[in-house]
């Protein structure tokens, strides 16, 4: 069966050498079959497969030959399996056989070697640990110093805040100067209204006119007052 494809996919496959020359490639679809899970095809629905006639003699002979072959192969496999097991047990090809005394001596030698290695490694380890301990001590000292500096800075910052607050506390309105503060506020009413012209000039006050008595309110008269009032209200 043939299926036409564009060259893009075909070029990725193995038939590149055959098909890359033509823009319209042909791909051979070989293993095309109905998947097992699909139902019987409509065209095959009422098909009754014919039962093949078997020659009884031939069948008996084939059965005998088949059984014979299976028996031979089974016996041979068992023999080879046992042979391999036996060889594994008895062979000395892949390892050296030692007498018990030799084994003992070999073991003692191994132990001694292990001991020397252990000692060598212990010396190295102690040196390393000593170094590490010193390094750790230095690190801890540095960190303690850094913590002390940090704490001092923090205390300084706190002192600063307290000093500033104390400064400010002088302007606070208390019970004693409440009356004078009220009187002062009534005597100096603050007008926060302003208007703005196209040039961006600001005219402070509700009734100020451009070119009038207020003029552009950059004179700062009200500004200082506003400032004072804000501070007082704090």
């Amino acid at each position: 069966m043939l299926r036409t494809t564009t060259g893009v996919l075909a070029r990725l496959t193995i038939n590149e050498s055959k098909t890359s020359s033509s823009a319209f490639a042909l791909e051979f679809v070989r293993w095309r079959r109905k998947p097992r899970w699909l139902p019987v095809a409509k065209s095959k629905l009422y098909r009754v497969p014919e039962r093949k006639e078997q020659n009884a003699e031939e069948r008996a002979e084939l059965m005998r030959l088949h059984n014979n072959y299976k028996l031979q192969m089974r016996s041979l496999r068992q023999y080879l399996r046992e042979e391999v097991l036996r060889l594994n047990v008895t062979t000395t090809a892949d390892h050296i056989v030692l007498t018990p005394e030799q084994e003992e001596a070999e073991f003692a030698r191994c132990m001694q070697e292990n001991e020397t290695w252990n000692q060598k490694i212990a010396v190295e380890r102690n040196e390393r640990l000593l170094k590490e301990r010193e390094r750790q001590a230095v690190e801890i000292r540095e960190r303690l110093e850094a913590a002390r500096v940090r704490e001092e800075e923090r205390m300084e910052r706190i002192e600063e805040i307290v000093r500033r607050e104390k400064e400010l506390a002088k302007t606070f309105i208390t019970h004693e100067n409440l009356e004078t503060a009220i009187e002062q506020a009534l005597a100096n009413p603050v007008d926060y209204n302003f208007s703005i012209d196209l040039q961006g000039n600001i005219y402070r006050g509700r009734t100020t006119l451009p070119g009038g008595k207020g003029t552009p309110a950059t004179s700062g008269v009200q500004d200082t007052e506003v400032q004072q009032t804000i501070e007082a209200s704090n």
Partner: peptide, 14 residues
């Protein structure tokens, strides 16, 4: 009997 060869045929006619 078990043999490694062909054995005695079940259907000698064949």
């Amino acid at each position: 009997e078990c043999t490694m060869g062909l054995g005695t045929p079940a259907s000698p006619k064949l």
